[in-house]
Design a protein around this nucleic acid. Sequence first.
DNA 1: GTTGAGCGTT
Length: 218
Amino acid sequence: MSRSGRFGQPDNRDTFSLLVLNVSFRTTADDLFPLFDRYGEVIDIYVPRDHRTGNPRGFAFVRYNYEDEAQDSVDGLDGRKVDGRVIMVQFDKYGPNAEKIHRGRIKEENPKPRGRFRSHSPRRRYQDDYRDRDYRRRSWSRSRERSEQDRNRDSDHRCHSKTRSISPDYDRKHSRYSGPPAHRSPSHSRSPSPRRAPSGEGTPSRPRDRPSPCSGNP
DNA sequence: GTTGAGCGTT
């Protein structure tokens, strides 16, 4: 629940979401509530956190009922120092009302760029990013092939400097921690491990299946 | 425990 206390039911349909960037890691929704509530009625405030550490990511989302209040909040809180950090308030580009923001009078009512903190913030257009992001996702198929090649090359490069002085036994014992890069992914579904020793010899390594290019390659 | 461009959960 994004309710930070007395927040009612947030309506994503008629509400305007504001993105607050440059927020201190210690700043919470409760700290931003009195600040944004001054310029208008805050519907809801949400501060995304990291799933790994649980720490805030450094930005928050503020929802308003009317764009007027949102714009007023942006004009008033944008560039304001909060918790010793200068925050940047701007409209979200992913919200349902993103189009209204672009075609709305928000842009017209702001003909004079304050140029206070936007000068050193060369943020790219999200429209292009959105398309670019989709393009990257489709390139994942080819990314896999490149991954194998890179890995192969890495193996070759390693046999020229390290594997040379290390015994296979030593590598095998420590191969569990420094060998497979997927040791950090507990998900079994993600790592099907297509190449696994069919014989239960108890040797995770496959010296026979994968001959060393150093010795078998003059 | 850290960090500093960016886009979010029941």
